[in-house]
Amino acid sequence: MIRRKTIQCDLVLQTVNNLRCHATADEIYETIVKEHPRISKATVYRNLQRLCEMGEIRKREFPGGADRYDHICSDHYHARCVKCGRVFDVDMEYMKDIEQSIRDDHGFIFTGHDIIFKGICKDCSNKQQIYDADAHS
Rank of each mutant, 00 (worst) to 15 (best):
M1G: 14
I2S: 11
I2P: 10
I2E: 15
R3W: 06
T6D: 06
I7G: 04
C9I: 00
D10Q: 11
D10L: 09
L11F: 04
V12S: 02
Q14M: 03
N18C: 04
L19A: 06
R20N: 14
R20I: 03
H22Q: 09
A25V: 03
D26L: 01
E27K: 03
I28D: 04
I28N: 05
E30F: 00
E30W: 00
E30V: 00
E30C: 01
T31M: 00
T31A: 05
I32Q: 00
V33W: 00
V33P: 05
K34E: 09
H36W: 01
R38M: 07
I39K: 00
S40G: 08
S40K: 01
S40P: 04
T43H: 01
T43M: 01
V44Y: 01
Y45I: 13
R46G: 05
Q49R: 14
L51S: 01
L51W: 09
L51F: 06
L51G: 02
E53R: 15
E53T: 07
R58W: 04
R60L: 15
E61K: 13
E61D: 14
F62P: 07
P63V: 11
G64K: 10
G64C: 09
G65S: 15
A66S: 14
D67F: 08
D67T: 10
R68P: 03
D70E: 02
D70G: 02
S74V: 11
D75W: 09
Y77A: 09
A79H: 03
A79G: 06
A79P: 02
R80Q: 12
K83D: 13
V87H: 07
V87E: 10
F88D: 03
F88V: 04
V90Y: 03
D91V: 10
E93Y: 05
Y94V: 02
M95T: 12
M95Q: 13
K96R: 12
E99H: 12
D104F: 01
D105N: 15
D105K: 15
G107L: 04
F108H: 13
F108P: 05
G112Q: 06
H113E: 11
G119N: 04
C121A: 08
C121I: 09
C121G: 07
K122C: 07
D123E: 14
D123R: 08
C124Q: 07
S125I: 06
K127W: 08
K127A: 13
Q128M: 12
Q128G: 05
I130S: 06
D132N: 13
A133L: 14
D134A: 12
H136E: 14
